[in-house]
């Protein structure tokens, strides 16, 4: 335990706990066929929670241990990035490495990252509020909050532009499939 504490910096601890939880839940949900259904189902719910809310919880955990917003954002992205890599690896098992990587560029994943930034933005506001009410020194500017909106705004704008210019939902599916046809068939 002491060694773990030495190895893992305090800012990363929440993210690491969530990561281990997600890994265990994945093992139970996907591979625990001999386990009772109720247990697997509960694992599914926790896993979904980790994937959707993990970035925000990790962000808060990092900020509480003194991380700057930028460092907390990096820490918050740990779980989403590893989950995304797992998805790419799974697709690569079936379609090969190159197509597997391309599968990882599906609009769904891009919007997932944008959503994670929104979740971290909400976590950031919670932290700011906490610091403000407690008159803590760690409080930085509220203005940083706006940056968390940028990825979603950018993606939506590009999607809209693509739709207008090509008639295809370039990120969401049809445009993505056109890209696959062009590159791989």
């Amino acid at each position: 335990m002491h060694m773990l504490n030495t190895l893992i910096q305090p800012q990363w601890r929440t993210a690491m706990v969530l990561l281990v939880t997600a890994i265990v839940m994945t093992l139970v949900y996907d591979f625990g066929l001999a386990l009772p259904v109720i247990l697997r189902n509960t694992a599914g719910v926790i896993l979904f929670g980790c994937i959707i809310l993990g970035a925000g919880v990790s962000y808060i955990g990092a900020r509480m241990k003194g991380s700057s917003p930028l460092q907390a954002t990096k820490i918050g992205l740990l779980l989403p990035v590893l989950w995304h890599l797992k998805e790419i690896w799974m697709a690569g098992q079936i379609f090969g490495l190159a197509a597997g990587i391309y599968a990882g560029l599906q609009g769904f994943y891009l919007f997932y990252y944008a959503l994670m930034f929104l979740v971290m933005g909400a976590a950031h506001l919670c932290c700011e509020l906490y610091y403000l009410l407690g008159n803590k020194e760690q409080s930085c500017s509220w203005g940083v909050s706006g940056y968390f909106l940028l990825p979603m705004l950018l993606l939506c704008a590009l999607e809209w532009l693509g739709w207008m210019l090509t008639g295809l939902d370039i990120f969401m599916f049809q445009g993505f499939l056109q890209g696959y046809r062009f590159l791989f068939t």
Binding site: T26, Y29, D30, R40, N41, G44, L47, F48, E87, M90
Partner: peptide, 9 residues
Amino acid sequence: DSWLALADG
């Protein structure tokens, strides 16, 4: 289970 549509991928 009810969560099947949401769990994991």
